[in-house]
Design a protein around this nucleic acid. Structure first.
Lengths: 219, 219
DNA sequence: GGGAATATTCCC
DNA sequence: GGGAATATTCCC
């Protein structure tokens, strides 16, 4: 796997060497205690760390995820899940923890991913809308054609009706005229009536070319 | 205004003190030269800076925007717009420059804000479009219903017209029948013809209740 | 205890 | 020369 960070490696070596009284493992080896912070700062810090301030080491340990417990006499106890006596192979797991501000950046990145997703959806919806709009336009065009057709047919019907009305007016006159004639023949049986008409046909009349044909009112 | 950064202040003091031969202002006081880097690292670095490596100082100066020029014998000359001999009041303007990556991050943040704004607008527009389209669809549906109604009524009218036409056909037969009768009266003057018909009317005929009225073909 | 600015180191 | 990881300091 990875290599332990230099800070962690140094710290472990200091503890394992047992050269210093100011720092030691706890009895179960799952934590260590800085027994004498002043001594530690004076004799160890300059040699093993960049800083001269022990507070910097605390800050470092904190940023690596160590839990700190304050004991009597300004002593501090630190523990970390993967910083255990004898467990060298897990030291590399002791890593700097991302600060909240960086985690926040990550969140922003996530939000970009989400936004991209939303953007994609928006685009799809837009495309749907556009294609729907196309089909709507087609429907409207069809309706427009149908309406034109309807209008033409209505016009035709109106014209026809007008024509019919005019003819019918004339026919009405005709019908009225003949109705009165039918009255005359009422009561006559068909054969008799036919006979009379035939007789009349044979009679003929005075041909007056200048005044013929006889003008009926409906003509 | 602001205070000069500790690094800048220290550097300026080192130069002004003229205690060290390894570093000095240029003649015009607009730059300084590290005349002896090794000596500088040995005697000045530990006292004035955290680091023991002169390279770290170079890195620092670089990040503060100093221009570096390499001279003979590994000497370096540094200059900065606001780092000038005697010009203490402008020292605070010598500031860390944001790295490109950070400036880039800022830009990204801005673009995210803009994108969010645009996204919001897009969503609103899309919603508007969707609701508009819905109302358009409703309108089309209504028009479709109206058209169906119109078509049905036109059909009704057409049927009616057909019926009328059929009746007219029968009427035509009637007309043909009477036309032949008119032929009979042709030649008669109107008064004479009327007279004949009146005479016929007065005659009357055998009333046969079971067979009356006389059945004309068109009835 | 931890955010944030600054410094240092490492590395290309 | 400068990006990026790590360390240190400062400060709330």
């Amino acid at each position: 796997m990875g290599k332990p960070k230099i800070l962690i490696k140094n710290l472990y070596e200091i503890l394992q060497s047992e050269k210093f009284d100011c720092i030691r493992w706890t009895d179960n080896g799952r934590a260590f205690i800085i027994v004498d912070p002043e001594e530690f700062q004076k004799s160890i810090m300059p040699e093993y760390f960049y800083s001269t301030q022990i507070k910097s080491l605390y800050r470092q340990l904190n940023s690596y995820g160590f839990k700190m417990r304050s004991l009597k006499n300004n002593q501090k106890m630190f523990s970390h899940k993967w910083f255990i006596q004898g467990n060298i192979s897990s030291l590399y797991k002791v890593e700097r923890q991302r600060t909240r501000s960086i985690a926040h950046l990550d969140k922003e990145k996530d939000s970009i991913v989400i936004m991209r997703e939303e953007m994609k959806q928006l685009k799809e919806e837009l495309e749907t809308l556009q294609s729907q709009q196309n089909s709507i336009l087609k429907q409207i065009r069809i309706h427009s054609i149908i309406q034109t057709y309807i209008c033409k047919n209505i016009k035709k019907i109106c014209d026809e009706q007008k024509k019919i009305n005019m003819e019918r007016e004339q026919e009405t006159k005709l019908v009225v005229y003949f109705t009165s004639m039918f009255e005359i023949f009422k009561g006559f049986q068909f054969e008799i009536a036919s006979n009379i008409i035939l007789q009349l046909k044979d009679i003929g009349g005075p041909q007056t070319p200048s005044f013929s044909p006889m003008i009926f009112p409906y003509m």
